[in-house]
Design a protein around this nucleic acid. Structure first.
Length: 198
DNA sequence: CACAGGATCGTT
DNA sequence: ACGATCCTGTGT
């Protein structure tokens, strides 16, 4: 049930981005004593997806996204928030944004990092997740299939998924704004903008 | 519950 | 100039 298993192998990440996104819900992220269970994600479907950072070509910032799956892409948003993405596929410019998670272990540490707040407000939203894990862009390019540092661990996938449009991409083309690339655990309250999902 | 506004900075 | 956001404050 709520049990993280071992690291996922590199091949696990080198599949279609939507497939990996759905499969990530219910898996675990660990950094030191903090263990989180992933409850909400978004797929960014490569250079042809106008909401994806790779739609504007290769830059030093998005370089990890152009590499093989199984690595982190961390970037700074609004000058404040460090967003965690999981690169997928085989150097296709695709990645999954981790939006929300549930605390499994290390709640005291997370609360300290999150201004002493409690409950789902701790971790529903990608900026909050970055705070909870104390991330910085130094983690961009980090490998998830080798032990140490920031790890993604296996576990039972979510029983049922909710699905909907992505958040905060109003600058994208209408077709990409509408795309239902956001996935969340139907059984969890640790999900942002839950009413917009079905 | 629904807004509005400020914080803050690397990338383009 | 702007953004894959968060928090606080105000009003209903």
């Amino acid at each position: 049930m709520n049990e993280p298993t071992g690291l996922l192998p590199r091949e696990w990440y080198r599949r279609d981005v939507v497939e990996v996104a759905r499969d990530l819900v219910g898996r675990y992220i660990r950094r030191d004593q903090v263990v989180l269970r992933i409850t909400e994600v978004e797929a960014y479907n490569g250079p042809d997806d106008s909401a994806s950072h790779t739609s504007k070509g290769r830059t030093p910032r998005n370089a990890p996204m152009w590499g093989p799956g199984g690595h982190a892409y961390v970037y700074l948003c609004y000058g404040i928030h460090n967003m965690l993405n999981v690169v997928t596929g085989n150097a296709e410019g695709k990645a999954v944004l981790i939006r929300s998670a549930e605390i499994i272990d290390g709640e005291a540490v997370v609360r300290a990092r999150r201004k002493g707040l409690a409950g789902p407000v701790l971790l529903t939203g990608p900026g909050k997740l970055g705070q909870a894990l104390d991330l910085s862009t130094d983690w961009s390019g980090h490998s998830f299939f080798e032990p140490g540092g920031l790890e993604i661990l296996g576990g039972t996938p979510a029983r049922k998924l909710l699905r909907g449009a992505r958040v905060g991409i109003q600058y994208a083309r209408p077709k990409d704004i509408r795309a239902r690339y956001r996935f969340a655990d139907a059984d969890s309250v640790w999900v942002s903008h839950r009413s917009k999902l079905r």
